[in-house]
Amino acid sequence: MDFFAQFIDILLHIDKHLVEIIKDYSTWTYLILFLIIFAETGFVVTPFLPGDSLLFAMGTLIAKGGTGLDIWVMFLLLCVAAIGGNSLNYKFGSYFGIAVFKEGNRILKLEYYYKSHDFFEKHGGKAIIFSRFLPILRTIAPFVAGVAKMPFGKFTYFNVIGGLAWIGSLLFAGYLLGQIPFIRDNFSLVIIFIGVVTFAPVIFAAVQSMFKAKEVIEEIEEDKTV
């Protein structure tokens, strides 16, 4: 519970935590954020890292000034982190396969694999782009692409487009909107809104899959009674 409370606090007040990081580490902040984005996209066991809110908050802080950080340098470095992370995740998927997803696993849940795989099958290569904007799925999708043996050249094409779109949209959205007084004064509400918008499709898909699973079970039970 303490960990969960701390995690929520970091999400809701990520701007304050970033201010502390910038104050303590100055230009090393580039490396810290690079590692966070790389880890979220590169390791299938770290889907909980705050990618969306982190990008938006960083853009907002740079817009305020006084950080000593450059928006374009940040953009380029984080794009490299996002693209490189996904590529590594793909390689892990092609090497380890589906065996790492297990029933009852709290992080690598088997249901995450099935949801990502269905999403991947439905949208093809575009899923690599779309998943960038969906928490959990953006961490699992490149791994699933590796498991499915998607051609690496094709994967890289969509990976680059998705990485540029994800980093650019959220980082520059924070940079532009962060200059608006209402956004600055109600930052926690903005972060909650971002969280709701990004998690809503994932929650909807989860609920939808539960109903489908229930329907399948009912059909099986009906067949048994016939």
Rank of each mutant, 00 (worst) to 15 (best):
R184G: 10
V147L: 14
S169Y: 01
I161C: 00
L164Y: 05
P151G: 08
S169A: 13
V190H: 03
W166T: 01
M150A: 07
S188R: 10
A145L: 05
I192Q: 03
L164G: 05
G178T: 06
T156A: 12
G162W: 04
V196Q: 02
A145E: 10
P151D: 09
G162D: 01
L177C: 11
I183F: 15
G153R: 11
T156Q: 05
L177W: 10
F187Y: 13
A165Y: 01
F152Y: 14
F199N: 02
S188A: 14
K149H: 15
I192Y: 04
L189T: 06
F155D: 11
F187V: 13
V190Y: 05
A148W: 06
I161A: 04
G162Q: 00
S188L: 08
L170Y: 15
L170W: 13
F182R: 05
G168C: 10
L189V: 06
K149Y: 13
Q179R: 14
N159G: 06
F182L: 14
G174T: 12
I167E: 09
V196G: 01
L177T: 09
N186K: 03
I192W: 06
I180V: 15
G174C: 12
K149M: 15
I161T: 02
M150G: 00
L171V: 15
G146S: 11
G153D: 07
S169R: 01
R184I: 15
F199Y: 08
G146D: 07
Y157W: 13
R184D: 14
A165F: 13
F155T: 06
I191W: 08
G195E: 03
I183G: 08
F152P: 04
F172N: 03
G174H: 12
I194S: 00
W166V: 03
G168K: 01
V147P: 07
F193P: 00
V190M: 05
G195M: 14
G163R: 01
I194P: 01
L176G: 12
V190A: 03
I167D: 04
N186W: 05
T198P: 04
I161Y: 01
V196E: 07
F158K: 04
P151F: 09
D185F: 08
G153M: 05
G162F: 02
G178K: 06
M150Y: 10
F172S: 03
V160H: 05
A148F: 10
T156V: 13
Y157H: 08
Y175W: 11
I194Q: 02
P151L: 06
G174D: 11
P151T: 02
